[in-house]
Computed example of a mutant assay.
Amino acid sequence: MTEDIGAFVPGPRVRIEGQPGGPLSGLTFAAKDLFDVAGVPTGGGNHDWPTGRPVPTRHSWAVQTLLDAGATLIGKTITDEVSLGILGENAFDGTPVNVRAPGRVPGGSSSGSAAAVAAGICDTALGTDTGGSVRVPSSFCGLYGIRPTHGRIDTTGMLPQAPTSDTTGWFARDAATFARVSSVMLGEAIPTALPNKLIVAVDAFGFADPDVAEALKPMVERLTMVIGGVREEIMAPQGLSVWARAQRTLQPVEAYNTFKDWLDTGNPRFAFSVAKALVMGSLTPPAEQSWAALMRQEARGRMRYLLPAGTILCLPTTPFPAPLRGQPLSVLDPLRDRITCLCAQGGLAGHPQVNLPGAAVGGLPVGLSIIGARGSDATLVAVAQAMERAAGA
């Protein structure tokens, strides 16, 4: 596959060989431009962010971990500005090409990482997920992708956005590579035992476009055969849009607090949608923040109730396939809101979630997500492997 898909940050491409003999020897990876790489400025998707900041002298924990395991870093990838985006269009660096859905966005904010893996340029890639930034591009690009349990992965050397929701994630095209990388990043072997109970989130399937729900039916049937016992439940009794509103309240407030000193002293340039999110975060009343924090507690309680050990839940990762590139804000804003309705549980409750590729609508990828109890990350990876085996049986 040609590498001219706009996945990597402009300028000379960094390459760092992995340690020989490790469990990931022979694999290549890319890192979203939120992760520090020694000797390379961390751009954060905004050309004003590196100004006046020292160049990192150490690799981020995630980059170092993959290098120590033998994987070779081949470059840093484009991200939505300071990870405040979900579609993958960057006003400074452009939009990476989604080879699985030509003419359409790759999804963001881990757009370059997902695009590079989908195109076969690297075997795996690091992304981040605050409000859906690994899960969404995984669905749009037809990849395995994980949002780990919040707090499970060391985020040292990763540019933060909203720390109570931020996670480090990664992508792969096949379940075997996904499992190899996941075992290293999670620091544990992938188990052989699988969960024995499956919940189908009927509110989430009802919220997705009808053709998406229909396209995912064979995957749900396969998952039922892999797991066994199945039942239907409503994931968000208060409403998916209510959970989304809570996440859209908490995340911009935290993002504003993360960047407010830079905004004050640097007056940086932003795309309008990014600037608007930061402004809204700065103006959110304390009463609204308090309501959202209470709703987060409700969401956490609901997910704990639904997901004891041995149980997983499935839902569409995104309500629709990748939208067309270059659409006006009046079209994109409602799409972002709908995506958040299926992604808000990640930032609110912090449970691990894995996107499973394997379905399509009109030739465009759509993913099925599985969510487990906090700490069950490796078990979800085992389910991903079992699903791939079942598909090939």
Rank of each mutant, 00 (worst) to 15 (best):
E288I: 03
A384C: 12
S109F: 09
I86G: 02
G363K: 11
S111E: 07
A390V: 00
R245H: 09
G301T: 02
Y305M: 12
E232V: 03
R302K: 15
G45W: 06
G70A: 11
R300S: 01
V40R: 05
T124N: 10
V274E: 04
L315W: 02
L278R: 10
T65H: 12
F207Q: 11
R13W: 12
E288F: 01
F259H: 14
I86F: 06
Q251H: 05
G266I: 03
A344N: 08
T28G: 02
R152N: 04
L283R: 14
A176S: 15
M219F: 06
F259S: 07
D33E: 14
V279R: 14
I16H: 08
A71D: 03
G358R: 09
P191M: 02
Q345C: 01
V354N: 10
G6T: 02
E298Y: 01
V82L: 15
G239C: 08
I5V: 10
A309S: 11
A176L: 11
A382N: 06
E3V: 12
S113H: 09
C341P: 01
R58Q: 12
S83E: 01
D337C: 06
A208D: 08
D209L: 15
R338Y: 10
A62C: 14
H47V: 14
M235F: 03
A275V: 00
G363E: 12
D4A: 15
F272D: 15
S290L: 12
P316N: 14
G375H: 00
A116S: 12
Q327A: 15
F92T: 08
K197C: 04
R245I: 02
G94R: 06
P365Y: 01
S113G: 13
T379L: 04
P195W: 03
D333I: 07
E298N: 06
A7T: 05
A299V: 00
C341K: 09
R152F: 03
A38R: 12
G326K: 08
A309M: 06
R222S: 14
P308K: 00
Q161M: 15
D264V: 05
M219V: 00
L223Q: 11
R231H: 07
V361D: 02
D174L: 12
F320P: 05
D36E: 14
A390D: 15
S330Y: 04
R302A: 07
S139T: 03
